[in-house]
Design a protein around this nucleic acid. Structure first.
Lengths: 106, 106
DNA sequence: CAGAATCCTTCGCGATACTG
DNA sequence: CAGTATCGCGAAGGATTCTG
């Protein structure tokens, strides 16, 4: 099933959030880490590797001192736009729905 | 973040697959279980409860002997259509890309 | 800063058996 | 059939420390 394939690549707790963070302008490791609440550096490092293997992000090392590493999204990750946008839309709407309900529901 | 809200509700390994299974015409517990490879009855039971709490599926008990229980998707679950469709589309394309190794261009 | 290494905890998920 | 009850593994995730 196709949905399963998608979940295998961008499922889990962090991957889409990381892609969003990078595409929002956070390119440095610490920037990404700070922009995602509650993520640890170990988890971030692990996830970045997987995303790079799937060609969804690109890691570039600049030979400075100290060394500078930049993460950017790849053109391929743009194909996830529909997925991300639909999830943003649904989540936004769902939050409104929950908010409106709690004053009526027990 | 909105995506996080969406992941909290339909994230994880099974929830979207269950919704798809039910909306595809599987309404009985064992039908759903059989239509989703590798899922166990415990996991299915747990997930069904959560989905019902989020008003994404409806559980109806018919007083027969033996008792008949039917699961159906709710109108609210239709709002997930965009999410599901975009994931099906992406997963399908991604599989082609993996198979063709570079043949499928973005 | 950008991670690697290590250790530890949580719990999602699974296998099996059993009940009404 | 439609679940529940246990038991428990393994992996995801977390905390801390350390290195270049």
């Amino acid at each position: 099933m196709a949905v399963r394939d998608t979940l295998d690549v961008v499922g889990g707790k962090w991957k889409l959030l990381i892609i969003i963070a990078i595409s929002s302008g956070n390119s440095r490791f610490r920037e990404i880490e700070r922009s995602i609440p509650k993520i640890s550096s170990k988890v971030l490092a692990d996830e970045l590797k997987e995303l790079e293997q799937h060609d969804l992000i690109k890691r570039t090392v600049y030979d400075a001192s100290p060394v500078i590493v930049e993460y950017t999204v790849t053109p391929y990750s743009d194909t996830l736009k529909k997925v991300v946008d639909s999830m943003i839309e649904w989540g936004t709407n769902h939050r409104k729905r929950i908010m409106g309900k709690e004053k009526v529901k027990v």
